[in-house]
Design a protein around this nucleic acid. Structure first.
Ligand code: MN
Ligand code: MN
Ligand code: MN
Ligand code: MN
Lengths: 220, 220
DNA sequence: ACACAAACTTAAGCAGACTTAAATATAAAG
DNA sequence: CTTTATATTTAAGTCTGCTTAAGTTTGTGT
């Protein structure tokens, strides 16, 4: 079990690479809350193991084997999340932190067994896709941020950002979950806050909140 | 997550201490498959944190807080084992290795939640007692090793030693599980092997196997 | 084209958890 | 009580994953 650190680097690289599948060292350091020097160190090691392509001062890219490893970590993480949510009954704001540790522990065999129990699910509790055993990534529906909707638009919640606990707790509190239908009742141009209705109730939400909820737009 | 090593030391100390609750450094090294020097190192650290009583060259004893910590680790381990067995459906020969890693990961909250799902169980899949949240240890029934039974004795399986995978696989194969009723049909004095019957079938088992199965003796 | 800030690497160092080899203390036997 | 064997600690060194500080490279703005 000496790979926790490496595994976290690979996940972060995978999840934060740009459209060219590249990432800058700086961003890795930011995400992992460590110094740039530490990142440089590790990049050399990952490069030596052929998990990333790396030349000093250039941006970083996962190799094929690096990407496979990373994808498997994301798979492990999201299966744990869904398992904890559906089988163990943890609320969606708690599953991420638990999964962040558990992802490094159970065997692949256990992960596969849990996946089977969950009936080969495609998405985690926050709507993120779960890579399959052979690395295929379920196609996600086209979404827009809730913040882009205007008065009288409505949409189905497909995905939410999952990095802030109190955000997730608040969503649950006002009844927003995956597949909720949200209708925009009013929108205020001065701060982009909006009045929405969700399952018969109305709430005022900030632009920041709306930006982190992704919906499939419904016909007007 | 910097305590994996310490936690393993504490568990080993707890599980291998003698009747005086003492243990020798040597045995710790053996169980953890590391050098004596490494053990000395760690003992100094554990002592500094008041988790053990330690004077150079003397035997080691957990302090109260050390024992509490250790007991909680055993609790975590055994709840994981039972959860994996009962909820996830892993065979009893696989749960130990998984639990050995998982025990360091999930939060206490998760452990408590699993315990609740399992209905506050008292014993793990191998018959070992699960310490409760407040440290109480369920009373075990009085058992003897199967190897001490003689011809025509019979007993109920209450506990099995769980450190050897192929031993557990073989037990499952011949139908021995917790609560199985075993009857001794023949016993051979030259090697102490015995012919037993368990759920309508008969098997020849070695003394070594019998030594690792613990039964509650039934009236003749 | 040049200057400067941001990004990145190097250097030196530290803490954790190990190792092997050598020194020392304790226990066991003669 | 002395010798010998065993247990334990010390010493010195390794590897991982981090830190801060200092030095380089690169990209941007004027
Ligand atoms: Mn992690
Ligand atoms: Mn998620
Ligand atoms: Mn362990
Ligand atoms: Mn067990």
């Amino acid at each position: 079990m000496k790979n926790i650190s490496k595994e976290d680097y690979l996940s972060v690289i995978y999840k934060n690479s740009d459209d060219n599948k590249e990432i800058k060292a700086n961003l890795i350091a930011e995400k992992l809350l460590i110094s740039n020097a530490a990142v440089t160190d590790m990049l050399r090691k990952l490069s030596k193991e052929a998990l990333i392509d790396y030349k000093p001062y250039k941006s970083i890219k996962l190799t094929e084997s690096g990407e496979n490893y990373a994808k498997n970590m994301v798979r492990r993480h999201r299966i744990w999340e869904l398992f904890l949510h559906q089988v163990v009954g943890l609320p969606w704001d708690k599953v991420h932190d638990e999964a962040e540790k558990l992802e490094h522990s159970g065997s692949d065999e256990l992960i596969n067994r849990m996946e089977e129990m969950l009936n080969f699910p495609e998405f985690d509790p926050h709507g993120d896709p779960i890579p399959s055993k052979d690395g295929a990534i379920p196609k996600q529906r086209t979404t827009v941020s809730l913040s882009t909707l205007v008065e009288n638009d409505s949409g189905v919640v497909i995905r939410v950002n999952d990095f802030n606990k109190s955000f997730l707790i608040y969503l649950a509190q006002i009844g927003i979950e995956l597949n909720s239908i949200i209708e925009v009742k009013e929108k205020r141009s001065f701060d982009n806050s909006m009045l929405i209705s969700v399952s018969q109730k109305e709430w005022n939400i900030s632009e920041t909140l709306a930006e982190n909820v992704f919906v499939e737009k419904l016909k007007a």
